[in-house]
């Protein structure tokens, strides 16, 4: 890429932060994943082909960095890739991730939606994040999370349906 990197941070930074918060819960882990995503991206930027879809690329990097954050905190030798990553993220959230459920005081409006997202099963939560926030095609989501394209599509749609029900119950 020949364009200034800062334009990508400006344009895609908020989307990547929402993806990180959806996957790890809003808090220190999501902040770490965001920071490491953009540091990795900065390293790779000059070699990145001009025709790259930058947002989709950043979301894929964010997935890997989110898994790294969890793996490092888990301090255990864990298998990597696809379904194993989802299992790792699943165990993390069930085990009580650092900062999950807390949002900065200046962003009270965000708390409700993140609580609703956090309540989803891990695979649904991840598929909703990568599809509806990150805009990734289902084939790529399947590659990142293991399983088939159809399963990724179903998980995203079940996840959104659950969010919708919750929305209906909220006055």
């Amino acid at each position: 890429m020949r364009a200034p990197f800062d334009a990508a941070v400006e344009r895609h930074g908020p989307t990547v932060l929402r993806v990180c918060r959806a996957v790890l819960g809003p808090g220190a882990d999501a902040d770490d994943a965001w920071s490491e995503t953009f540091l990795s991206a900065l390293r790779a930027w000059p070699e990145l082909p001009e025709e790259t879809n930058v947002e989709a690329w950043l979301v894929r990097v964010a997935h890997r960095r989110a898994v790294d954050v969890v793996r490092r905190s888990a301090r255990a030798a864990t298998p990597a890739g696809g379904a194993d990553d989802v299992a790792l993220l699943d165990g993390w959230v069930r085990g009580g991730a650092r900062g999950t459920g807390t949002v900065d005081d200046d962003e009270p409006a965000g708390a409700g939606i993140w609580a609703a997202v956090a309540a989803l099963p891990t695979r649904q939560r991840i598929c909703v994040a990568y599809r509806y926030l990150g805009g990734l095609p289902y084939a790529e989501i399947a590659e990142l999370t293991g399983g088939t394209e159809a399963a990724a599509r179903r998980a995203a749609s079940d996840g959104v349906a659950a969010l919708r029900e919750r929305e209906e119950c909220t006055p």
Binding site: G13, P14, R21, W34, D104, A109, G110, I113, L163, E167
Partner: peptide
Amino acid sequence: SMLRAAPADT
């Protein structure tokens, strides 16, 4: 759209 509009101050 609620998800996409969630605040994200970077």
